[in-house]
Structures are given as C-alpha cells and as structure tokens.
Amino acid sequence: MDSTVRRRSSRDDEVRDRRRRHVANAALQVVDETGADAGTALIAERAGIPRPHVYRYFASREDLDNEVARLAAQDLIQRVRPHLARRGTPGQVVEGLVRACATWADAHPHLYRFLAARGQSRTLHRARMGRSRLLDEIAVAARGYTKSGDELFPEGILVGVMGMVDATVIWWLDQRDETLDVMVRRLSRHVTLVLQDALASHGIHLDPTVELEPFIGE
C-alpha cells in the first residue's frame, strides 16, 4: 500500500470514528432525556442523519447501547473517583461514594436506570466496560483502604453491595418519598453495616471510629 492510499485510509478512519462518536453522543443525550426505550429514529434525528445511517457506524442496537453505557459509566466514574482517595471513617468513606452515585442518579435518572439494567448484561460484563470498570476501581480502592489482598476482599461482596445501592436509588427515583440527603444517609449506614459484617467473615475487622487512609493521594 503506497503512502497516498495509507493517508486516504487514515483520513477515512478518522472521519468514521468522529461520526461514530457523534452518533453515540446523540444517543446518550436521547437516553438521558427520554429513557432506554428511545427509538433509533429519534437518535438519528438528534444526530442529524437518516435512520439507516446509524448502522453504518454501529453493528447493531446492542452495539450502540454498549457504547452509550460506556459513556454514561465514564461520566459516573469521574463523579465517584475523587471519593476513592479521601481519608475518613468507614462510614464517611461509604457515604461519600453513595452520595456521589445518588447525586449523579438524581441528575441522570434515565441513564442510571439504563446502567443498572446493562450491568446485568453478559456482553457488557465480558467486555469489562460500563459498570464493571466502576466496580474494578472501587474494588482496588477497597483493598487499599483495608490493606487486604484479592483473596481477602472478594469482588462478590461489592457486587452485592452495588445491587443494594442500585435497588435503593432506583426505588427513590421512582417514589421520591424522602429527601436525597435522608436516603443517602440511611443507605450509607446499611452499606457500611453489610460491608463490616462481610469483611469480618473474611478476617478483616474495621473499627467504625478509626479513619482509613486513602488508597491513592488527593
């Protein structure tokens, strides 16, 4: 392949990637505004392209949904990440994480529901995208906070806790029967108790009054 052909191919790839990102961002906006049932026609309209052209850049609706989940999770991770590097008691650390998730969910209820549902997707899990990336980062930080290794802090503990957080936050989004602050404080207490009990069964005992050192610096 000569240099002219290579340059043309490179430009074509750049254009295709740019248009793919444009369609994905349009889909993200539509799902954020209307929910996971948003049709491809609405996404195409937001992107300013004919409906069939969506599938020039994505192999299927599943492929597009995976990219939307990745983008949404990336935004959520950016909101949560600072709280993985803060000193505090177990309760304070947990409340910081729960509050970050709940505040993001309050601002993006449709995306939060979408992510929670996609978190059960085998395809998404195998690809290690979306919520699994968030889980990975929390697991690493948790092992750092507790000075435990992989064997002593199984990821299954966090999977169960995340399920509890999702269920509670989604219930709150649907019912709004208490303030965000009340829900966050109540949920944080429950999560802290579950974690303390689960960790104790693995020989890790957390003093609720002792401040934990962050895994990474501020």
Rank of each mutant, 00 (worst) to 15 (best):
residue 83 H to C: 05
residue 82 P to H: 01
residue 72 A to M: 14
residue 107 A to Q: 12
residue 97 L to P: 03
residue 117 A to L: 05
residue 30 V to D: 03
residue 192 T to P: 04
residue 62 E to M: 00
residue 87 R to M: 15
residue 215 F to Q: 08
residue 148 S to V: 07
residue 57 Y to L: 04
residue 124 L to A: 13
residue 12 D to Y: 05
residue 86 R to N: 06
residue 14 E to V: 13
residue 97 L to F: 11
residue 81 R to S: 10
residue 83 H to L: 03
residue 138 I to G: 05
residue 126 R to E: 14
residue 96 G to H: 04
residue 34 T to N: 15
residue 103 T to Q: 04
residue 144 G to I: 05
residue 154 P to Y: 02
residue 217 G to P: 09
residue 206 L to D: 09
residue 83 H to V: 03
residue 197 D to T: 02
residue 178 E to C: 03
residue 177 D to G: 10
residue 141 A to I: 00
residue 190 H to T: 01
residue 79 R to H: 14
residue 6 R to N: 02
residue 47 A to Y: 07
residue 10 S to D: 09
residue 46 R to G: 12
residue 152 L to A: 12
residue 154 P to H: 04
residue 98 V to I: 10
residue 174 D to C: 09
residue 27 A to M: 06
residue 174 D to W: 03
residue 185 R to N: 13
residue 86 R to M: 09
residue 133 R to V: 10
residue 64 L to A: 09
residue 161 V to T: 12
residue 71 L to E: 02
residue 32 D to C: 12
residue 208 P to N: 00
residue 195 L to I: 07
residue 1 M to W: 14
residue 1 M to K: 09
residue 31 V to R: 06
residue 216 I to M: 15
residue 58 F to Q: 08
residue 134 L to D: 02
residue 87 R to N: 06
residue 79 R to V: 09
residue 135 L to M: 11
residue 131 R to W: 12
residue 108 H to L: 01
residue 147 K to F: 08
residue 157 I to C: 03
residue 57 Y to A: 05
residue 96 G to T: 03
residue 29 Q to K: 13
residue 210 V to N: 01
residue 176 R to L: 11
residue 159 V to Y: 05
residue 162 M to P: 00
residue 68 V to P: 11
residue 115 L to I: 02
residue 105 A to M: 11
residue 77 I to D: 13
residue 26 A to F: 01
residue 191 V to K: 01
residue 184 V to E: 08
residue 114 F to S: 02
residue 179 T to G: 15
residue 97 L to W: 07
residue 181 D to S: 13
residue 136 D to I: 14
residue 124 L to H: 10
residue 214 P to F: 07
residue 190 H to C: 14
residue 113 R to T: 08
